[in-house]
Write a protein that binds this DNA or RNA. Structure first.
Lengths: 214, 214
DNA sequence: CTCCATTGTGAACGGCGTCCACAATGGAGT
DNA sequence: ACTCCATTGTGGACGCCGTTCACAATGGAG
């Protein structure tokens, strides 16, 4: 079904071929539909057509698999933000462009949370997985993590003279707080049931609040 | 230890006396130390000195127990916010008082998250548990839920002329987003390891951003 | 072509949530 | 005061989970 490469997949041969990747793909799919707690090791092996223990040749334990899925989810979030920025119309005004890039971080973030709530929850299900030594696994196509994209955008704001350098320090935490909080409100909280238009509008208000209040 | 009434508690007699309460207390304690996933039904019955199935006479399933624990955690959060507001010095200026009460919601919220991260996580582990029909179970001593306290404070801001009525609509979602996002950043995110002083300072900056940007 | 590190298997353990049938209990109604 | 029975707790079992141990298949290095 999943077509784990090698033709008809792992059945025929004793060796699977790319089990680690297959388990990760299964984990991502489970996270997509059910969030982090739906990432269950035995089910992943089942989907890969393999005995439960086989997973332990590629992941130390369930937490390691979940961590890899979380990294992938963070990468997908980064990709969504990058796509949001890439879709921006070209602007002659560098200041307007910097502001647009900053706002695109917030809108891309919130849109991803609504489009892929399971992945979004999984991305943040592991404490302090946002940045770190091996950030590459959590990056998007452009090689930046979501947090990195935010810092870039804030630096751009300072460069364009839209944010006083004195207020730059810690600004990522303020901006991230607001945007991430809204995302959780939209997928788990009282705003869960609002329609797309309202969500977009609230997102716009929030980004404006941050932009104005920073 | 817990002194579940009836002298030396549930051992001697067949009947426990107040099992529902004992299970809830055990659940709260587990949530306090390990967050929502640490609320495990069998362990609660073990702590109450009772067979696992006995729990099903008082809670439909584990989710029901977790829901009751979540309600209690929300109530504790409300109590913390109320205490924060009650500790405010009396002010002759009603506008200053309104602003202080509003800010106290944010600081009380963030302080509770840092002081009781397990309970805080548990409070928000259930979708859309913030308000609703039976809000009494989630309220503090004053009878208001955390969300209710926030709306009260925002109404106070409008009443004091500090917030234009035109901007009142949806303001709770913007303010809540920012404060809740910061709280999660402080307990699960990259700000997990900061000292109390820094946390207080960032909290202050954030509340200022909201206050200014709203 | 042989050896052996790598990768998958089989069986088992303890823990979990949950269900069913059964036993103790103590208050309501006589 | 005694009986009945709804309530509350028990014992045992099921299927699922993560995880470990000993063992078997494999295929590339020598």
């Amino acid at each position: 079904m999943t077509g784990t490469m090698a033709g008809r997949a792992g059945r025929a041969t004793y060796r699977h071929g790319d089990l680690r990747h297959a388990l990760l793909a299964a984990g991502i799919e489970m996270a997509r539909t059910g969030g982090p707690e739906a990432v269950v090791l035995r089910e992943a092996t089942r989907r890969a057509g393999v005995a439960p223990n086989a997973a332990y040749r590629h992941f130390r334990d369930r937490a390691a698999l979940l961590g890899a899925v979380s990294d992938a989810a963070l990468g997908a979030l980064a990709a969504a933000i990058e796509a949001e920025q890439a879709a921006l119309p070209a602007s002659g005004d560098p200041a307007a462009a910097a502001r647009a890039r900053f706002r695109a971080v917030g809108t891309g973030y919130v849109r991803f949370a609504r489009a892929e709530p399971g992945l979004f929850r999984t991305a943040f299900s592991i404490p302090d997985n946002l940045d770190g030594d091996d950030a590459a696994a959590r990056a998007g196509p452009g090689g930046r993590t979501p947090f990195g994209l935010l810092t870039d955008a804030l630096d751009g704001l300072v460069g364009a003279g839209l944010l006083p350098p004195g207020r730059r320090s810690g600004a990522e935490y303020l901006a991230w707080s607001a945007v991430h909080g809204l995302a959780t409100l939209l997928i788990d909280g009282p705003l869960r049931a609002v329609d797309d238009e309202t969500a977009e509008q609230i997102g716009h208000s929030l980004v404006e609040m941050v932009d104005h209040g920073l």
